[in-house]
Simulated assay, not measured.
Amino acid sequence: MANRERNKKILLELAKQPDNNRCADCGAPDPDWASYKLGVFVCLKCSGTHRNLPTVSRIKSIRLDFWDDELVEFMKANGNASAREIYEKDVPAFYYRPQPGDCEVLREQWIRAKYERLEFTTEKNLLQKTYTSGLREGLLWKKGKDNGHFQKRKFVLSLEDFTLKYFNKEDESKGPKAVISIRDLNATFQPQKIGHAHGLQITFLKEGYTRNLFVYHESGQEIVTWFNTIRATRFAYLKTAYPSASDNELLPQITRSYLKEGFMEKTGPSHREPFKRRWFILDALDRKLLYFKTQLDAEELGVVFLGTEKQGFSVSESSAVGARSNKWKYGLAVDTPDRKFLFMCEQEREQREWLEALRKVISTPMQPHHYTSKRSPIAISPCMRANASISCRE
Rank of each mutant, 00 (worst) to 15 (best):
C345V: 05
A24S: 13
K124D: 07
R58E: 15
F74D: 13
R58W: 09
K9Y: 03
G175F: 04
L126V: 05
N326P: 05
T364D: 04
M1G: 07
A197N: 10
R211W: 07
F214V: 15
I230H: 05
L157T: 13
P54S: 10
H149I: 00
R234D: 02
E317V: 14
H369I: 02
H370I: 03
Q201G: 05
D161A: 07
P382N: 03
Q367P: 08
S181W: 10
F214S: 13
E353L: 14
A232W: 06
Y237I: 06
E261Q: 10
A241N: 02
A298I: 02
E116L: 08
K340V: 13
L71K: 01
T233E: 08
S389L: 11
I111E: 04
K193G: 07
K129G: 11
P31T: 13
K165Q: 09
R22E: 10
P337T: 05
Y96H: 15
A2T: 06
E108T: 07
A28N: 13
M1Q: 11
R51D: 15
D102L: 01
K276R: 11
S35E: 06
Y87C: 07
F343H: 11
F66G: 00
E317L: 12
H196Y: 07
A388L: 10
D161I: 02
I86C: 12
F280Y: 09
I86D: 10
L200F: 03
I230F: 13
E222C: 01
C392T: 13
T121A: 12
S158H: 04
M344T: 15
P54M: 08
A320Q: 13
L71G: 01
S158L: 12
H50S: 03
V224G: 08
K165T: 04
R6E: 15
C345R: 05
